[in-house]
């Protein structure tokens, strides 16, 4: 019974941290409550920049590899290696070799975002029926026209699906950005001495909520991106 009470009080204090400001443990600065809004803004800015870079690199590359039918090995290989690279290793490598800073951490996160987007874009283009592409060619479409008006629209749900996976990944990993000296919602998690127990747990709740919200938002975008919604039967994910 007392164990349960202590767990409940831990979470109660964490919720209080999320909604009300208080002085930091060492004194001097206000933490919690509205201070988290600033950290949230930092977190989202870092994630958005990283995701944008990842999309700008991986979508065109994946489409090109898929359209030309070359580079199966490359697309699949990058996806496999990418999964095995620990996020903290990427951030640490960028920090050790390039130093601290918003741009360096954003680049590390962008590298993390690339493999799923690349693999999904590649597979999405490859899965377009060859008959459909033939029909487009028969109508006199050029290569770039086929990509833009046939392959890309049909592959779009998978492309957005890859972006969704990466977005959740990036938002989650941005939580350890403070290890490399860049501010995010992970601050209270990393700087335990300043924020204490309730700050760490409270920030963990917020980070989890932001990740779930990202998943839901991009899941919705994925559904809207489908040009043939009624004809597809996909496993709910």
């Amino acid at each position: 019974m007392s164990a349960l009470a202590s767990i409940l009080s831990d979470f109660g204090e964490a919720l209080e941290f999320i909604f009300t400001e208080r002085e930091s443990r060492a004194g001097g600065s206000e933490i919690g409550g509205t201070q988290l809004l600033g950290l949230l803004a930092d977190h989202l800015a870092l994630s958005a920049v990283a995701l944008a870079i990842g999309i700008a690199v991986a979508v065109p590359l994946g489409i090109w590899l898929g359209h030309t039918g070359r580079g199966t090995f490359l697309a699949v290989g990058i996806a496999n290696v990418g999964r095995a690279v620990p996020s903290i290793a990427l951030i640490a490598l960028f920090f050790a070799f390039l130093g601290t800073g918003f741009v360096n951490v954003a680049l590390a996160l962008a590298l993390l975002a690339i493999p799923p987007i690349l693999a999904n874009a590649y597979v999405g283009i490859r899965l377009v029926e060859p008959d459909t592409v033939d029909a487009a060619r028969g109508m006199g479409m050029t290569g770039p026209q086929i990509v833009r008006r046939v392959e890309l629209p049909l592959a779009l749900p998978l492309v957005v699906g890859g972006i969704r996976t990466s977005a959740v990944n990036v938002v989650a990993t941005a939580a350890i950005a403070p290890l490399a000296g860049v501010s995010s919602l992970g601050d209270p998690i990393i700087a335990f001495g300043v924020y204490g127990e309730s700050g760490r747990l409270g920030a963990s709740i917020v980070v989890a909520a932001v990740a779930v919200a990202t998943e839901v938002t991009f899941g919705l975008a994925q559904r809207l991106a489908d040009p043939l919604p009624s004809t597809r039967r996909t496993v709910p994910a």
Partner: peptide, 26 residues
């Protein structure tokens, strides 16, 4: 199948760093 995929999907979405600290009190 649907409910299991949904529940495990939510678990999969929660960032591991957050999950570790959410579990600490338990």
């Amino acid at each position: 199948v649907g409910p299991i995929v949904n529940v495990t999907g939510i678990l999969y979405t929660i960032p591991s760093v957050a999950a570790f600290f959410l579990l600490l009190p338990l």
